[in-house]
Design a binder for these strands. Structure first.
Lengths: 372, 372
DNA sequence: TTGTATGCGTTATCAA
DNA sequence: TTGATAACGCATACAA
């Protein structure tokens, strides 16, 4: 930059090469530039190459709006300086980000690892990235997260369910960005939603057990969140309609769901109702725990006890005997939620405000009782 | 403050209250202010309350540095305007963020859901938040993520393993923020590391099987990443030392790991080596899939076949027969990695650059063979 | 204790 | 097509 005038710095790049091929490879120091962070800025690469910051910005943003030669030179300068765009500055100046906030109630729960996989796959190759929040099944935590995420002016927000507090609800409705609710079918979506009816899905499981001839069907559940309650409602309605419901068939706890807990709940049920002949579990972890417990007690599946899980994890089809489960489309929900979010963030009108991905009963050996 | 002079805008606040109690509750419009985003800014709440922007900033940042009365008034003004701090502006102005980048090779793999749980727990209550990246077992993707994350000038970066490309490695070493490598024990840590020796842990599993009298011990593995290879090395070394190694005992695939795949690999092993008498699995999903497959084939566990898993997931202790596994401290690694990252981000010297969380052999029924 | 002025690195507007 | 310049919203020396 010594003799920079209108711009006769054709030598600039030359000097770089003369002095040594890698000019400031660490990007740590350089000249006195970037006094604060020490990292090279847009102006640094502009200075290094002898063009204006705007040009560099354009090359990075919309390369086609710049002449080919300029583009080349800018790219080289970017490489040489080891420049990395500053996200914060970009967000501030353009008043928008490429961040999509995703808030789930748990990362432990395998249910959500499938959802997250869908999220990552949908994001891959797009210009967007996700910011995850773990609400840990707490409304307070969820509220903090929504507030936190909204402060980043995200391109969109994906939240789980619809049993938000009024505060959360009003924040979401005033979010100023597209909001996608997943997992459920909210009666009054904030913006868009993709999910399924947990009550209906559980009812299908209950009906299946009844059709297979089971009569004293327990409902085993942990982590009593809203979707669990919806499933329980579906179960109760179905058994009641069949004249089979009895309070003592409900075995629930607020503890977080796990395989070990499934075994425990199963034990409790069997001791409480030695005549019990089937189990509808709130999820597959509980179900397989119950299955293991039955095996341990040498209770025959499916003849003495029928078991139906929920979600249809990978292992349900592999366990011996294979386990009946209600299949849910978790991956698809994550994936499509992001697709919807991105489309909306880019101004497209939603194709649908409410998407029902449905469910499917996957009948296997664990409920294949010989008709009595 | 009514009689404020040096700056007689004592009426400002007054007018707000006169006109109506909730001044611009939605924060959407107001006067011509904030022409760009439309959201209320620090200046907006300052104007609304009649104090200076810096005072508001201080109340939000270090409340104790402001008089109690001011604090009260500022809080009210913040409430009334519905102000939410702009993260980007804050990051830009202060040249630092509260974001810790976390890059893992998979979110599907249950291994990492435990790590993530530790990460979330460690973050909870701190002033930091995580930004996750899923490298999907791809170095290319990992490189993109590191570059992307570094652009946010994160407070710290947590990455998985140490088999990075040279490009990644040099970026990490020039990151300008604390870097924590997890899961492994790198010979030359970039900065700090917390993990375990996968070779030793797998060797312990192999030794256990040998001690229990098994002789034709297979190694079943999928997703041949670096840690899987390390475990395989430990297995090979142990069997070789015992004079038991044979190439045909290795049953591996590059497909992603799953329970179903475990069953498949087990089938392959049993048909390839009908005399095989034990399985050391690269992880519990593979192991339990193998266990299910044995049950399906009515191969007795542990008498005909012994099975030892790796990681010790929740279900290993519950399955019938209960499954021996090498216990790893995944939650602890996630949790302590973040603790280390935060401490370093706040300038504390690391207590240790390399932390070995070790492993533990959890012997259960699946390897309890009667000595022959 | 509180207010003023400046700069953070980028984008966007306008002029050339 | 390229360059100069003014925001963007906040933090922070510095002044009062």
């Amino acid at each position: 930059m010594e003799t920079r005038r209108t711009r006769d710095l054709a030598e600039q790049p030359r000097r770089q090469n003369a002095d040594g091929k890698d000019v400031d490879p660490t990007g740590s120091t350089g000249r006195g530039q970037g006094r604060k962070t020490g990292k090279p800025t847009l102006s640094d690469v502009a200075a290094a190459g002898g063009f204006s910051p705007s040009t560099v910005s354009r090359v990075l943003r919309r390369p086609e709006s710049v002449s080919a030669t300029m583009r080349q030179r800018v790219w080289r300068a970017v490489e040489e300086t080891g420049y990395v765009p500053n996200t914060a500055a970009r967000a501030l100046a353009s008043a928008r980000t490429n961040v999509i906030g995703v808030i789930v109630p748990s990362v432990t729960n395998s249910v959500f690892s499938d959802v997250l996989r869908g999220v990552f796959d949908a994001l891959d190759g797009s210009a967007y990235q996700a910011q995850f929040g773990n609400a840990n099944y707490s409304h307070l935590k969820e509220e903090q997260l929504v507030r936190l995420f909204l402060g980043q002016h995200p391109a969109a927000l994906v939240v789980t369910g619809h049993d938000h507090t009024p505060a959360i609800d009003s924040m979401l409705r005033a979010a100023g960005c597209p909001v996608v609710q997943i997992m459920d079918l909210p009666p009054d979506p904030v913006d868009m939603a993709i999910g399924l009816s947990h009550a209906e899905a559980a009812a299908a499981g209950a009906r299946h057990l009844i059709e297979r001839g089971y009569r004293r069907i327990a409902f085993l559940a942990a982590q009593m969140d809203m979707r669990t309650r919806a499933r329980m409602d579906g179960y109760i309605a179905t058994l009641t309609a069949a004249g089979l419901f009895d309070e003592r068939l409900l075995v629930t706890t607020h503890k977080p769901s796990s395989v070990a807990l499934g075994a425990q709940l199963c034990s409790e049920f069997l001791s409480r109702r030695p005549d019990g002949d089937a189990i509808l579990a709130n999820n597959d972890d509980i179900a397989i725990g119950a299955l293991f417990e039955c095996q341990r007690r040498r209770v025959a599946i499916p003849d003495q006890i029928g078991i139906c899980g929920f979600n249809d994890f990978d292992y349900a089809a592999c366990v011996h005997p294979s386990m009946t489960s209600v299949t849910t489309r978790r991956y698809e929900m994550g994936r499509r939620a992001i697709d919807m979010a991105i489309a909306a963030a880019e101004g497209q009108a939603p194709k649908a405000r409410l998407v029902d991905v449905g469910y499917q009963l996957s009948a296997r050996e664990s409920t294949a009782r010989r008709r009595t």
